[in-house]
């Protein structure tokens, strides 16, 4: 009898390539890289079977730093390249890394389609609300008024919220995390990988050089507890330093309301329970913004559906089962005649 030898469990550093990481010191991308490497090790991912595909931008340098297969492609097109990889070999574990400009500006079309098709990939959007690599122009997620080299008087463009966009594209898995919260990110990455279909993860990422502290109003330690809610499936939507804040449906309105348990007759029973399969709830959670509401983090929406590459494969296998193609027969199909 063969004795199965368990492969030695890989560590985070086993997922780090030998290339020198070249992001600016203090960039949020470092923390995300570590979190991904740690999460992959914990998940038992196989480097040989893992592919990271990226577009262009600071975030998109990511694959070079991973000791997996990697493809640094062209600006905005990573979802399209990744789709081809997954179609050709559905067994590969395919991750896409993209920036807010890469994913929502030049690549918005491809993000839309990889999500609506439900291709089985993980899409990590590093949102720093700025174009880092090209030295700080405003991006499609930058807030109105953002001063940048191309908007000296402040941007007048209305921004798009990444998760709202994903939900509108019929993404079946939507999660949000913060660069410095490695443990929470690890959980989200694991869930994203487990979800068969397109998994969309927005990662709030600080660009220390061109947009420092853009998210400080909810990421700073001293405000985090009051401005973040970590949603967990089938658990009460409760947050706050004293765990006494929660979300409920505002009476007489179709919207969420942040309330304090013990005030105005509110009890824990009034607080909503998170249902990650509820798309309407997801849309309300995603839209929440400080100061009136906390920022929703964690797995906000997960409701799986058949994945695209599987359906494609099923059609091909079905056709093959009816008889493998014969080239000579194909060339002779239809009307033919013989000259002797």
């Amino acid at each position: 009898m063969n004795v199965q030898v368990e492969p030695a469990k890989l560590k985070a550093k086993d997922f780090a390539s030998d290339q020198e990481v070249r992001w600016c010191p203090g960039c949020g991308d470092y923390a995300i890289l570590k979190a991904v490497q740690m999460a992959l090790a914990n998940m038992g991912a196989e480097p040989d079977n893992t592919v990271f595909v990226s577009g262009i931008g600071c975030a998109s340098r990511f694959p070079y730093y991973m000791a997996t297969y990697g493809f640094h492609t062209i600006h905005g097109r990573a979802p399209a390249v990744a789709s081809g990889v997954k179609l050709a070999n559905p067994d590969l574990d395919v991750w896409i890394v993209s920036g807010d400009g890469d994913a929502l500006s030049i690549g918005g079309n491809h993000l839309l389609h990889v999500l609506r098709r439900n291709m089985d990939v993980q899409f990590l959007l590093f949102n720093n609300e700025i174009y880092g690599l090209t030295k700080g122009q405003y991006s499609p997620t930058s807030q109105i008024g953002q001063k940048s080299p191309s908007t000296p008087q402040g941007s007048v463009d209305a921004p798009i919220d990444a998760c709202t966009f994903a939900l509108g594209c019929n993404a079946r898995f939507i999660a949000r995390g913060i660069d410095i919260q490695a443990k929470d990110l690890g959980y989200v990455f694991t869930r994203a990988r487990d979800h068969k279909g397109a998994s969309f993860v927005e990662i709030i990422q600080n660009c220390i050089v061109f947009n420092d502290d853009a998210f400080a109003h909810f990421t700073e330690k001293k405000v985090a507890k009051e401005t973040q809610i970590h949603v967990v499936h089938e658990e009460k939507l409760i947050y706050g330093a004293d765990s006494n804040k929660g979300l409920r449906i505002k009476p007489g309105a179709f919207e969420l309301e942040a309330v304090t348990i013990g005030e105005n007759g509110i009890t824990e029973d009034d607080i909503l329970v998170h249902d990650e399969t509820n798309k309407v709830l997801a849309s309300l959670l995603i839209a929440m913004k400080p100061p009136t509401m906390p920022v929703a983090l964690g797995v906000i929406y997960c409701d799986s559906a058949p994945s695209y590459e599987q359906a494609v494969k099923d059609q091909i296998e079905g056709a093959k089962a009816k008889g493998l193609g014969d080239m000579d027969a194909l060339l002779r199909s239809g009307n033919t005649w013989t000259v002797s």
Binding site: T73, R77, A80, V81, S83, G84, V85, K86, L87, A88
Partner: peptide, 12 residues
């Protein structure tokens, strides 16, 4: 996307 997905397929 057509060209890029073809490239992805070749890569795979």
């Amino acid at each position: 996307a057509a060209a890029c997905s073809a490239i992805g397929a070749s890569y795979a």
